[in-house]
Nucleic acid binder design. Structure first.
Length: 481
RNA sequence: GCCUCCAUAGUCUAGCGGUUAGGACGCUGCCCUCUCACGGCAGAAUCAGGGGUUCGAGUCCCCUUGGAGGUGCCA
């Protein structure tokens, strides 16, 4: 019987939820949950200097918001609690000591200066196993002296091929000589990521490790650790990076690299998740728009790409636009309201009607602000706007038509949307001209713009009778100047 | 420098020895239309280069080139 899959998402609390990390979490969640497995959250905060206040909560909140519900984690506990590495401190040193006793690790007292002297002309440095030769007595003596120390992994310096199988990249082989005797326990007593990671994954029964490809070449070192403890190695799934462009990783410094940044720019949760699941994975059936559930069931390892993917906000916008258009109207109004409050329409006009006009015309919620700004752009405008070849209109035509329209509208009592539409069209028919002859000049007269979200009759309704008539009169004056 | 990995249009990708190299974003054109947008249709655009292997290579191998990652008391 296959054992159940246990994956973990193990971010370090560095301040924000990077899109790449979110994708790793998504894949891990889908992989486990799509196969009846478990998904665990563990905070890797062994570097106390880099920890950013509040990050852990941000991670937890984002996971909740995106529906990546973990079975065990810092806030909900679980059978292997605690799920914050800094709180698990006690065990690591003991495990390291076990390795020392076995000869798989050793105490090192080298200071920074000596370490730096080992740096070669390329800036690379490989520890020379200097302290490996220290006698047991000397180590005891220096330890008793309270000298500062670290514990290093003892990796054979003979040429040995270390091979493991990665589910995405296939077999990876690294020569022992290429691996440095990495530090397991830092001088502050904390384990390094490299060590804590292995210990905790084993202790927490993690049998499937999904993470960024930056660990591809250091994984053999972790495997040596698993072997030294005689623990079973997990299944490895390394993921390619998400890039800003061909040569730069997506990062905080260059634009919207965080989930929160994207939300702030008016992207919807569903669209963000849908887009990033496709960045590096393909269902291979040409389907792109998928619900969370569909992604969960479709996700598989075969579809994971080996090469880095460039984050394309333009395509995200397209997908986001799709999601916005499909939003039930009431829901869209809810999403749009805060943005309308931030726009020049704040507190003016019928929000629901505005929403009706804009829902199909935006890709992000942020677009609302610009799209809706047309209401305030009315003023002196270029009369050439009345010239439209296709509609066969010109300033002259407008000058002739507009007063008639004004009279007609002034007499119009029913200002409901439907009535407005019907009676304006009936009026046009009565004049015996084509729709464009009236509608184009009217729309320009109402907006002073080349294009608007909504046509003439829609603008009439949006602005209301008083404002509409005011604008038309203004435009007639402008034409007569 | 050394090590590991990657390489199909501008971008995300399908392809797993025989295809008119498929889809999507973006772009261009047309249609629809009270403008814009939506929608519909059509189009331009890709196997990094060079060697092999094979009857046959985008697919397998090697080299070159380009790129990413690693080479931390960061994760």
């Amino acid at each position: 019987m296959d054992k159940i899959i246990r994956t973990r998402f193990a971010p370090s609390p560095t301040g924000y939820m990077h899109i790449g990390n979110l994708r790793t979490a998504l894949y891990s969640y889908f992989y486990a949950k799509g196969r009846g497995g478990q998904f665990i959250l563990r905070i890797e905060d062994t570097d106390q200097n880099r920890e950013v206040e509040g990050s852990s909560q941000l991670i937890i909140d984002t996971l909740h918001e995106t529906g990546l519900i973990y079975d065990e984690g810092p806030d909900i506990g679980g059978p292997y609690a605690p799920y914050v590495q800094s709180q698990r401190k006690t065990g690591y040193l003991e495990y390291a000591k076990q390795l020392v006793a076995q000869g798989d690790a050793y105490y090192c007292f080298c200071d920074k200066e000596r370490l730096e002297s080992l740096t070669d002309e390329n800036g690379a440095r490989k520890y020379d196993k200097h302290c490996l030769s220290l006698s047991l007595e000397e180590v005891q003596r220096r330890l008793a002296n309270g000298e500062s120390y670290v514990i290093r992994q003892n990796i054979p310096d003979t040429h040995e091929a270390n091979t493991y199988h990665d589910m995405v990249f296939g077999d990876i082989t690294v020569d022992s000589c290429e691996m440095e005797d990495q530090i397991l326990i830092k001088s502050d007593g904390m384990p390094t990521y490299n060590f804590a990671n292995v210990i905790d994954d084993h202790l927490m029964n993690i049998n499937c490790v999904m993470r960024g490809a930056e660990y591809l070449s250091s994984t053999p070192k972790y495997n040596l650790l698993y072997d030294a403890f005689k623990w079973e190695r997990p299944v490895y799934i390394h993921l390619p990076s998400i890039m800003r462009d061909a040569t730069h990783k997506l990062s905080k410094r260059n634009g919207a690299a965080g989930y929160g940044d994207l939300k702030a720019k008016g992207f919807l949760r569903e669209a963000i998740l849908n887009y990033i699941v496709l960045l590096g994975w393909s269902p291979k059936n040409d389907v792109e728009k998928m619900s969370f559930d569909e992604m969960l069931h479709a996700f598989n390892l075969e579809g994971i790409s080996k090469s880095n993917a460039i984050f394309d906000e333009v395509k995200l916008r397209w997908l986001n636009g799709l999601y916005i258009k499909e939003l039930p109207f009431e829901e869209f109004v809810e999403y749009a309201t805060p943005w309308l409050d931030k726009s020049c329409c704040r507190g003016r006009f019928d929000y629901a009607y505005l929403c009706k006009l804009i829902q199909g015309r935006i890709d992000t919620l942020e677009d609302i602000i610009e799209l809706v700004s047309f209401v305030d752009k009315f003023g002196d405008y270029d009369l050439e706007l009345y010239t439209n070849k296709k509609q066969k209109t010109s300033p002259e035509v407008a000058k002739e038509i507009l007063p008639k329209v004004l009279d007609f509208l002034t007499a119009q009592t029913d200002w409901s949307e439907q009535q407005l539409h019907d009676s304006v069209l009936a009026f046009v028919q009565q004049l015996g001209v084509k729709n464009g002859i009236v509608l184009w000049p009217l729309r320009v007269a109402l907006s002073g713009l080349m294009s608007t979200p909504g046509g003439a009759t829609e603008l009439l309704y949006l602005f209301g009778k008083e404002e509409s008539l005011r604008r038309i009169r203004y435009s007639i004056d402008l034409l007569n100047k």
